[in-house]
């Protein structure tokens, strides 16, 4: 298994709402409309994390969603990238230090790209997906085991 150039021309995105107010989610759906049309870059919204290459996570993580968040991260097949959309997921936003919030997202799973904004603009989300390409490009040409080593290195 080697990463190659096909990956960044065909990113399938899974959208996960971890207790967001739906503001960012509407902006994500706006990406698919004729105005922004991300399908021309091969970006497609899929219904199952098993089909996804990129996780788009919105919302501060609440207690009920935490196990699901971890499960869905693990269900996504490698190689994958994680993008947090919106201020809530990035820092907690207005819900910072709230009793029912265990976020932000990067406390629990590794995050590659942050797209701040309340809600994040669609252009910002496209830019975030481009940044995720860069991560996957760095891993290009490595085999499965080397990818794992590299991820370990970056973590350490």
């Amino acid at each position: 298994m080697k990463l190659d150039k096909y990956l960044d021309r065909s990113l399938w995105v899974f959208h996960l709402n971890t207790g967001s107010c739906n503001g960012c989610d509407i902006e994500i759906v706006a990406l698919l409309t004729p105005r922004y049309d991300v399908e021309r870059f091969g970006i497609k919204l899929v219904g199952s994390p098993k089909h996804a290459d990129v996780l788009l996570i919105t919302g501060p993580v609440n207690r009920k969603m935490l196990p699901r968040l971890k499960l869905i991260y693990e269900q996504t097949p490698d190689p994958k990238a994680v993008i947090v959309v919106g201020t809530c997921g990035t820092s907690g936003g207005v819900f910072y230090d709230s009793y029912n919030i265990v976020g932000p997202v990067d406390k629990h799973i590794p995050v590659d790209v942050y797209v701040p904004g309340c809600p994040a603009r669609p252009e910002g989300i496209i830019n975030g997906v481009l940044k995720a390409w860069l991560k996957l490009e760095r891993l290009r040409g490595l085999s499965g085991k080397e990818v794992e080593q590299k991820i370990e290195e970056v973590k350490a």
Binding site: M1, K2, L3, D4, P79
Partner: peptide
């Protein structure tokens, strides 16, 4: 592209 991408996925 989708096909080749899926082939390299886990």
């Amino acid at each position: 592209l989708d096909f080749f991408k899926l082939m390299i996925k886990e």
